[in-house]
Design a protein around this nucleic acid. Structure first.
Lengths: 227, 227, 227, 227
DNA sequence: AATGAATGAGACTTCATTCAT
DNA sequence: CATGAATGAAGTCTCATTCAT
């Protein structure tokens, strides 16, 4: 189980337009079914039935079940990243980027409610594909954060760690308020998240419990170097 | 065909000490195997082999595979929560609680490397159990955060949203630096996380790009009310 | 499957009254469960659960599942035969015996709705027991019919063949109007059956279609139109 | 766990001639094995072995064991009804129909010695199928009897009740003299049955116990003595 | 390019029976 | 007498994959 390898996949690129169409139908059907029933419980027969092609046709386009799954996950990630990139294109500062990114992610998850089920399954089907999914998002965060740090716009901290912090937040908030609670109170949660991203818990240093709550006393900006 | 009356109803609590021991062996074996191979690929036969009992013995104690899985997940969550509770018992302020909590979680995940695989599978095996797992952690966060807010120790924001932010961060950092990278650079990541939790990205308001980086200008403490 | 032997069964006769009670509970539970779920689907565990004794206790009183089943069937037959014998004891002629016998059988089948299920299963569990069940009834019919024939009360025909005719009729009528239709219209069916038993279809000989009804003496055609 | 959509839906009607052949082989094998070992003891593996196909092939054509059983029973009933219909086609009167029908049934039961085992099992496998089996025969009886009654050929009684009387007789006689005793004395039994059908027990009314047992009154006793 | 019949390993689950206590 | 834990063979059903057409 769980072959962690993923060699670039000798994708059978069909030549005829008819083949292209069939292949596309299979991919769409697979996405639907992996989302509905999970990888293990979605059978090839389910997929071909949904795609309205014969069982054997599957193996004309994909060498095995794992391959189509990996392609579905990769596609899903690519689509989401493209959407986010477009959404944040016009943002003026990092906070706006964060907010738009989050909002776009929530929207996507809300429309493609199977997103979570599919991505999470990847961990058990093809670990490389799973890591790749998050790595690619992280890369986007890292470059964006670095730019913002260089611009003195945000605190200078390890950008990759921050990337995983931000992804984790988004992931869990989406799980809780999009997937589980179907968007109720989502805007308020977004505000909370933005406040948190902007200032964290804004806690006073524990080592100075003298009560002097004056803002001035707060950790001086410069101290954050370290990274 | 005619199935009207009582379901088999396996012994949930064994009556004899011998039974208790066997049941425990099965639970431990199941945890190991669900962690190693995942729910779908760990067979009952695998579990009984690992537990060194006969195949049929499984069904003396559990009605089916799902049941033992749910019990494993609930146990795992309970153990982790107890560990964390003990670890943060002596902490003086919220930041210390966060740091100790995170550290304890990373430690646990590092020792029980199957933690992630098991909990993530829960989503596909028994969704209620999966939600329960996070809900219980969230509840702990919420009560702790409320207390800290009341003490004026941290920013007042929606505590449940914060709970999911903090859990998501911990979860993703652990996945990246404990699970994937085996603890390398973990301390540094912990520091970053703590800095983020304390001050977020510490971003200047976008609407005041005047460049005056003096601390004083930062969002005044009181403003955070909102929630 | 279906061992057709049935050596007199070395019935374990328990000595203590307590044992008697336990054995009786098991027999009653077995009858209930064989009736409800059928022989194959009623497990020993079901039976002991119903009897409120431990699983192992079963094997104190019965060597195996088949044995208790055979005893249940034999008991059931004996009870029914005793009831019928009592019911027809006061009957003055054979027709009255037939009517009372049928009525008693229908009553019993209506109260012990599992009767059919149990007896029919016997064919597949222990054929000897199955045949014995009908043979014993047949013996009663045969001796009664012979007596009636000797008394010139009924037509002289092969009594064993008649016995199976009469049993078959009773069995099928009971199946149709007691088991399937729960006693609705049962009295009317009983009347029809009695008319059939008394005169059959009352058909004219085919070989004399000349219309000359000289036997005319016989029960006039129109007279019994009840239906 | 997540089982929401389409059930597998096996090919009920195979699309290719090859499939037709395989399906037929399975049906024939199933009939043989259900007859030999009974429903519960005939395994799918037994059936596919007999049919000389792989185990999995079974599930290409039937969703489960019960389905093929029901089809076997329905087929068996249809074949028998067709045979009887053909056999009685040329009969001139109702008595001839009864005799030919019985004879044909005995012949069929003698050749297909598994008939009883299969039909009786149906009660436990699929009750609807069991009832259907007898209902369809009953329907034939009913329409035939009605016609004969209208023609003044036989006594007018409730035809459905008569149908079950006649079926029960045939069934039990066949069980006793075809199944258990393998046709010995069958002709004689047929004669007895016909005499019974024609005149029943030919009993004098009980309400006329005047003691005058002289034949003189009703149908002359001696006339039909054959036994 | 497309089809669908065929395969068989392997999964989960049941249950009559044994046995130590 | 009574208990209940333990056993393992056997059964039903699933499904990824192959292959002849």
């Amino acid at each position: 189980m769980n072959r962690s390898s993923t060699p670039p996949a000798p994708r059978v690129v069909p030549l005829t337009p008819r083949g292209q169409r069939t292949r596309g139908k299979l991919l769409r059907a697979a996405e639907t079914l992996f989302g509905e029933k999970g990888y293990e419980h979605a059978s090839i027969a389910d997929i071909t039935r949904e795609a309205e092609v014969a069982l054997g046709t599957f193996y004309v386009y994909f060498p095995d079940k794992q391959s189509i799954f990996v392609e579905v996950v990769d596609d899903l990630g690519a689509r989401l990243r493209r959407l986010i990139a477009e959404a944040v294109a016009g943002c003026e500062d990092r906070m706006a980027v964060e907010r738009e990114g989050l909002r776009t992610f929530f929207q996507f998850a809300s429309q493609q409610r199977h997103l979570y089920r599919i991505v999470r399954q990847a961990e058990f089907v093809d670990e490389a594909c799973y890591r790749r999914y998050y790595d690619r998002f992280a890369r986007g965060y890292v470059s964006g954060l670095k730019r913002a740090m260089d611009a003195g716009e945000v605190n200078r901290l390890d950008p990759e760690a921050l990337a995983y912090c931000l992804m984790g937040m988004g992931d869990f908030l989406g799980m809780r308020w999009v997937l589980w609670e179907s968007d109720a109170g989502l805007e308020h949660v977004l505000d909370t998240a933005m406040a948190f991203i902007r200032h964290g818990l804004d806690a006073r240093p524990a080592e100075a419990p003298t009560g002097n709550k004056k803002k001035g006393s707060r950790t001086p900006r410069g101290s954050r170097s370290k990274t």
